[in-house]
Design a protein around this nucleic acid. Structure first.
Lengths: 341, 341
DNA sequence: CTGAAAGCGCTTACAG
DNA sequence: CTGAAAGCGCTTACAG
C-alpha cells in the first residue's frame, strides 16, 4: 500500500508553500512562471491527485450530483440515467446513483435522498415516485432539484418531461387516418403525471377528430406486464367492438402482446396496436410494433444540464418545464381495420 | 435557502460539547443516558444530518464505491450495475457510477478512474476494457479492485466471472443431443476473456463429444449487431454444410436474427440457433430463442459484496476468482436438424 | 464519563 | 507575487 501524496508533499518537493501550489493548480491569481513550472513538474513526478473530499469541505460544494431513479431494470430508466451521467461528466460533475430496489419505491428514494444529502450533493435529478415527499420538499429549499419523466406535488419547480399530449395525438390521428373508430386505451392505474397527460391527450384528440369515445374502452391496470395482460384480456372478453388499442407503457405493452398471442388475436389483422418506447424487442418482434418513441437519453441529458445551470446560479428562480418531443414510429402493428379493408 | 445544521448547532442546543454529540451519534463509548436522550432530542428537532464529507476526510474512508462499466446501453451491463448498486446500499455504502460514452472506452474509463480516485473511493468494481491499464494497476496497489464479467492483465487479483466454459458446454451438448454435427460458432473479434473462454469451451466440448470442428465454421466479427449480421451472412454464403449456430453475444445475436430473416433462412427449420443473454426481445420473438442465460444481477451483487469484504480487511490478500453459473434456457430456436427429422 | 485540543487536506482572506 | 493563519465539519487520542 503506497501512501497517498498530498498538497504538502508537492509543496515540499517544489520548495514552495502550500497555498502557492493550490493557487497554481486552480489557476487563480498570477504566479511567477518559474515557480509554476517547478510546481507542475513536482505534481507530475509525484503523481499528485487532489483530494476532492477536502476540497469539497472547504469550498462548500462537492461537484457531485445525485440521480434518484425509479429502477434501472426498465430500459427507459437506464437510458435516461446514462443521459444524466454523460451530461454530468461532460460538464465536470460526478453522478451518484440511487435506484431503490425494495418494495416501497417512495421509501427507498427517501432513504437515498437522505444518504445523498449527507454527502452534500450540489443538486439532484429525480424521477419522483407516486406521492410527494416532505423530506424532498425541504431539501428542495436548500439545493436545486429537477424532476424528470414525471412530476408530482410541487416541491420542485423544474421539470423535464415528454411532450405526452403531442405524441399521443400523433398516435390517435394515425389510427383514425387508417379508418379506426373503435379505439381502446390501456393505461396504468396510478395517477402519475405521465398517465394523466397521456389519458387526457387521448380523449382530447379523439374529441378533436370527432370520434366518440366509449368509456368502456378505457381500461386501467398495474404498470406491469401482468397488468397489461389482464387489461387486454378484459378488453377482448368484453366483446365490445374494437379495432385498435393504444397502450401507454412498455411493460404493459409486453403483456398485451403475450395475451394477444395466447388468445389468438392477430395483430394487426384483428386489432391494430400502438405501444410506448422504442426498444429492441419492439423492433425484433413479428409483427414489429408501432410505438410512441420517447427520447430518454436526451431527457436525462437535458435534465442534468439544466440542473447544473441551476447549481451554478443561472435560471434558478422562475419555475419552468421543458418538454422533449416524442416521435411516432410506424411499423407493422397498425393497419386499416378489417371491416374497411 | 435554509442554513444547514452542524454538529456544533446540536451541541449548543443540547448544552453539551461537540465530541459528546459525536460519540452518541456513532455509538462509541458509554455515555450518560440522560445526556444521550437530550442530544437525540436535539438531533431530531434540528433535523441534523451529519456531513459525510467532513466525516470522510477525518476518518480517511469515504464509504463510496465506484463502479466502472463498459456502457449502460447494454441490458446486461445495466442489470449488473443494479446488482452492484443494491449490494452497496444493503451493506451501507454509496455507489458512484462511471460509464464511458466516448469512442475510446479504455480512455473514458481511465478518466473516470482518476476522477473517482480523487474522491478517495474505498474500492472499485470494474468491467475492464480490452487492454490492461497502468493507472489502474497502480490504483490497485492502494485500494481493492474487483473485476467483473471479464478479466484482463493482472492489475487486480480478484474477479467475478460467468462460468463460460460450463454454459457453453451445455449449449453444445444440447445441439449434439438433438443430432447436430455441423455446428458453427459466431464470436466477437476482440480477445477479451469472455470470448476466449467461450471459444475454447466450444472447441473443448465438441472434442469431448467426438464431433469434428470445421475451422471454417468459426467466424468472428465485431461485437455489434452489424458484426453479427455480417458473420451470419458470410456463413450462409459459404454454402458449407451447417445445421446449427452458437452466437457468443447478445448484440451479435440480434444481427444474426435480422440477417436470417432478410436471407429467408428459417429458424429452427433451416438452422438451429443458440444465443447469449436472456433478454425480453429473445423471449418475445418468434421463434423465441434458446439462450445461455447469464445472471448479471447476481454477478454485480456478488462482486460488490466481495469488494466490501476486501475494503473491510477480509479476504484481501490471496487472489481469487468467483464463477457464477449460467443456465441454458431451451426455447423454440433449437430443433433436430432437418436431415435427421 | 466528558471536554479541550489537534488534525484530516484543502482554500481563501489577510499581511507583507 | 508569496506565505502564515484560519477554518470547512467532523473524529479521536489525551487529560481530567
Amino acid at each position: 500500500m503506497k501512501t497517498i501524496v498530498r498538497l504538502a508533499d508537492v509543496a515540499r518537493h517544489a520548495g514552495v508553500s502550500i497555498p502557492t501550489v493550490s493557487r497554481i493548480l486552480n489557476g487563480v491569481q498570477t504566479v511567477a512562471p518559474e515557480l509554476k513550472e517547478r510546481v507542475m513538474k513536482s505534481v507530475e513526478e509525484l503523481g499528485y491527485q487532489p483530494n476532492r473530499m477536502a476540497k469539497s469541505l472547504r469550498e462548500q460544494r462537492t461537484g457531485i450530483l445525485a440521480h434518484l431513479t425509479a429502477g434501472l431494470n426498465a430500459n427507459f430508466h437506464s437510458t435516461l440515467a446514462r443521459g444524466v451521467q454523460d451530461a454530468a461528466f461532460d460538464l465536470g460533475y460526478t453522478m451518484i446513483l440511487g435506484s431503490s430496489h425494495h418494495l416501497d419505491v417512495a421509501q427507498g428514494q427517501l432513504t437515498y435522498a437522505k444518504l445523498f444529502d449527507s454527502y452534500r450533493v450540489d443538486g439532484m435529478v429525480v424521477v419522483p415516485p407516486g406521492t410527494s415527499d416532505p423530506y424532498l420538499e425541504t431539501l428542495a429549499s436548500r439545493i436545486p432539484i429537477i424532476e424528470v419523466d414525471r412530476t408530482v406535488g410541487d416541491y420542485s419547480r423544474h421539470a423535464v418531461l415528454l411532450n405526452n399530449a403531442e405524441v399521443m395525438a400523433d398516435a390517435v390521428r394515425h389510427l383514425i387516418s387508417l379508418g379506426h373508430k373503435h379505439i381502446a386505451l390501456l393505461y396504468g392505474i396510478e395517477l402519475v403525471s405521465t398517465e394523466v397527460e397521456r389519458y387526457q391527450g387521448f380523449l382530447h384528440t379523439m374529441k378533436d377528430c370527432g370520434v366518440p369515445v366509449d368509456p368502456r374502452l378505457l381500461i386501467s391496470d398495474d404498470f406491469t406486464e401482468e397488468g397489461g395482460h389482464r387489461a387486454f384480456q378484459r378488453l377482448v372478453n368484453s366483446n365490445l367492438p374494437v379495432t385498435a388499442v393504444v397502450v401507454t407503457t412498455n411493460e404493459m405493452l409486453a403483456g398485451v402482446v403475450g395475451c394477444a398471442r395466447q388468445m389468438g388475436v392477430k395483430i394487426p389483422d384483428d386489432i391494430s396496436l400502438i405501444g410506448m418506447d422504442d426498444e429492441r424487442w419492439v423492433r425484433m418482434m413479428t409483427p414489429s410494433l408501432t410505438v410512441m418513441a420517447q427520447a430518454p437519453y436526451e431527457m436525462g441529458y437535458e435534465a442534468c444540464r439544466l440542473l447544473i445551470q441551476c447549481v451554478e446560479g443561472q435560471n434558478g428562480d422562475t419555475p419552468w418545464q421543458l418538454r422533449i418531443p416524442g416521435k411516432l414510429v410506424v411499423r407493422e402493428s397498425t393497419a386499416p381495420p378489417r371491416s374497411s379493408g
